Amino acid sequence: MTARFVRSATALAVAAAGTLTWAPTVSAEPYEPTPSASAAPVQTPAPDAGTIEITTKDPAGDALPGAEFLLLDSLGQEAGRGQSDAQGKLTFPDLALGIYRLKETASGSRLHEVVPDQDVIVTPGATTRLSIVDPFKAANVLVQAKDDKTGKLLAGSTVNIGSGDKTLLTLTTGSGGTASGKLPVNTSTGSVFWVKQIKAPAGYHIYESSKEFKAKPGDPVTVTVTHARTATSPPPTEKPSGKPAEKPTAKPTPSQHGADENVPTASVSRTPAADETAPSTAVPAPAGSLAHTGADATPWLIGGAAALTAAGAGALVLARRRRTDNASDGGSTAS
């Protein structure tokens, strides 16, 4: 039965040979070259391909989805681009051997900063794994120093700002009474900092030694320090010391104008005669005056006349005494 079926099939094939002989030829041609043609582009680069795998997170260890990266080859051409997934992962596969530049173009979060660019080496058949930690944005701190009574902004106030036992910033207020800086924040809810005054403005002393404040990532925060005026500061009227001493405080001396009007001169005190007048002898002729006219001899003449008068008076008194003595002697003889 089987032999009879084979012979029938053979006869049928031979009978139809005129129309079916081309079919095996057509079906065999695409079948034989297909494996070599399709395998060439897939298998050729496989031994030289490498992979870069990125994991993004923040300082707290939480994954950062949506972070955007750009990969450039050694010629600066784009070799890949993508975003991290919900687990913070991103992969660049099938990379040729070489050095690539990885750029983070966005962190995917308003609270985080991007990291600086970095070079990545790709080796054949290996996966290069990178852990990218995007820091929280720094807080912007503004320090202002004020008078505790008037609220006036003060220059020259120096403060330290830190966290824990570390000093992070040292700021000194300028002419406008303010100073600014950036503070690193380690959590999404913010960090606690302390501010301590270490130097007061001129004429003031430190009013508050230290106090605390909280700052969140990327947020501005204003810190106000106050100073009390020192009690020992000199009043404004005492600043020009030494100048009041230059003003005359003593009474006018006889050499000054008008002082000799009330002071008797030596010539007046020596004149015994009543008819002598002070104006003629009070003031001697100053050096450099007009030529002498003979009036300078007047004091000598007056003095001589006074001496003669005194001598005559003395002689008269003496003569009277002698007469009295003689009279007394004659009387005694007559008796």
Rank of each mutant, 00 (worst) to 15 (best):
K247R: 07
T10R: 15
T170K: 14
D165L: 12
G288M: 04
T224C: 05
I54G: 04
D275E: 05
T25P: 11
V268I: 08
E208G: 02
H292N: 12
L20C: 11
T271C: 14
L111Y: 07
P252C: 00
G304K: 12
K239I: 15
Q144G: 15
E32I: 13
G98R: 04
A23R: 13
A23N: 11
I52T: 04
R270Y: 07
T265Y: 03
G304W: 11
T51S: 11
A9M: 10
T55G: 06
A245R: 05
L171W: 07
L290T: 13
A310I: 10
V317K: 14
P234G: 01
A3Y: 13
P284D: 00
I99S: 13
E29L: 12
S38V: 15
K243L: 09
V283L: 10
Q256P: 02
A297L: 13
A60F: 02
A40H: 13
A311S: 10
V141N: 00
A40Y: 03
T158Q: 05
K243C: 05
G331Y: 11
P244R: 01
D296N: 09
G88D: 03
G156I: 04
H112I: 06
V42N: 08
L102M: 03
K182M: 02
A231K: 10
P45F: 00
L72G: 02
P252W: 00
A273E: 04
A145Q: 04
A200L: 00
V115K: 01
K216M: 09
E276M: 13
H112S: 13
S27I: 14
S267C: 03
S107L: 00
A278W: 05
G66Q: 09
T230L: 10
S188M: 08
K166S: 08
A67Q: 00
V143P: 09
A40R: 10
D260A: 04
R229M: 11
R129Q: 15
H292A: 15
V192Q: 07
S36P: 06
T19F: 08
I161C: 03
Q118P: 04
H227P: 07
V122D: 06
A215P: 02
F136C: 03
G66K: 09
D117C: 10
S191I: 03
A49V: 08
G108T: 06
A11W: 08
L64P: 05
L142T: 14
L130S: 03
A9W: 09
P184L: 02
V192L: 07
T55L: 09
V283C: 08
S180F: 12
V263E: 02
T309S: 14
G156E: 06
T222A: 11
T128E: 11
G174V: 04
S27A: 14
G312I: 13
P33Y: 00
